[in-house]
Design a protein around this nucleic acid. Structure first.
Lengths: 206, 206
DNA sequence: GTCTATAATTTGATAGAC
DNA sequence: GTCTATCAAATTATAGAC
């Protein structure tokens, strides 16, 4: 615990940061403990001293990543706000977060796809029942008031998530396809903040 | 299971099919040659007899997968058709193809993300210049004619691809989130064929 | 073409000194 | 807490018989 460096990160913190870097890029199967250790500036033995094994270290990284993906959207949707504001908040949140962590979506999706029990064994219940009923009710009200047309809540959620997340999942392809520099992509990301709500609200327009 | 069937697939075909199954699910790093051999009903030695090493086998699978992702859309967009029909064709194509091969998107995206040179070293030029100029012109015409509003071609392409592909990239999460059976998901996929063009055309509406 | 057996590496994990 | 050295298991790849 007693770390000599006052302002520097603790060894555990550096390990977690290194693990994130390597796991995000290579996945569980492709990542090497050796590489994580090197990235953290230590050796394998010390890595195993902090985290008994690879699985345990991965678990830590994966859960934190997953938490940033779905729950954030459900949290915003659960608020008591006009629909349009929710959509804007979600768009802002994802586009800002994923500009900083563009590897996160594919990292999560890849592991979920590779391990059929990735979600079940962690009781990631994705407690959507309450959320869905809340959203369904809000949509019904807005529809009744004639402010939006009648659409399925599931389709809305999927569309919203797709428009927010997918551009980052394909970042390497997007940048190559459109000959974007890192700066270009930042501008693109910024523009998505407006485009996503535009698309969603146009879709909802009566 | 002796494979003495005359019209049955050749050994090479069965290997490729097995490799697809395993690579799609586990990725390059997570896949085991042993598992591919078992899936193909042969042993490792014979696997190496047909494909010298893992990389070479993977290359074959990856390139075929990538070809199904982007080029199909560009091919449809390059046709001489009204915009709305193109969008519908693209929606139909992806939703039908990905219902059968839902693991494909994450497989491709994961490898592209894991290897920074995945695209460059294969001169996957993604020759979009010609496509982009063609699409840009069509959008300009439709805009001038007052049939659609003025939107950036890049945003349109990304939106279209996101709406088509992302639901399958998140299939495990979607099914869990909405408590869908395989049959439910088939219905969901079918409904996407209409939803995607609805969203896109609403976005384009003046 | 297909197999068994085995070589050659890689890699996750541990032992033990400091 | 951190390191060096090393083990044990897993995994890719090859040799050689049939």
């Amino acid at each position: 615990m007693a770390q000599s460096l006052p302002k520097d990160q603790s060894t555990e913190q550096r390990i977690l940061h290194a693990a994130k870097t390597v796991f995000y890029r290579k996945g569980l199967g492709g990542a090497r403990m050796e590489e994580i250790a090197r990235e953290a500036g230590i050796n394998k033995a010390l890595l195993h001293y902090y985290f008994r094994n690879k699985e345990q270290l991965f678990e830590r990284i994966f859960l934190e990543a997953f938490e940033q993906l779905l729950p954030q959207m459900t949290a915003i949707l659960a608020q008591d706000l006009p629909l349009e504001q929710k959509v804007q908040q979600i768009s802002d949140f994802y586009n800002e977060m994923l500009l900083e962590t563009p590897l996160l979506p594919v990292f999560v999706l890849n592991y979920v796809q590779s391990d059929p029990e990735a979600l079940t064994k962690r009781m990631i219940s994705v407690n959507a029942s309450k959320l869905m009923s809340h959203l369904t009710e809000q949509l019904a009200q807005e529809t009744k008031a004639g402010r939006i047309r009648d659409v399925a809540p599931q389709q809305l959620i999927i569309n919203l998530l797709a428009l927010c997340v997918f551009p980052y999942a394909m970042k390497p392809i997007v940048t190559r396809l459109f000959h974007m520099s890192e700066d270009d992509f930042r501008g693109f990301s910024e523009s998505r903040k407006q485009v996503v709500p535009e698309v969603i609200m146009a879709y909802l327009k009566p």
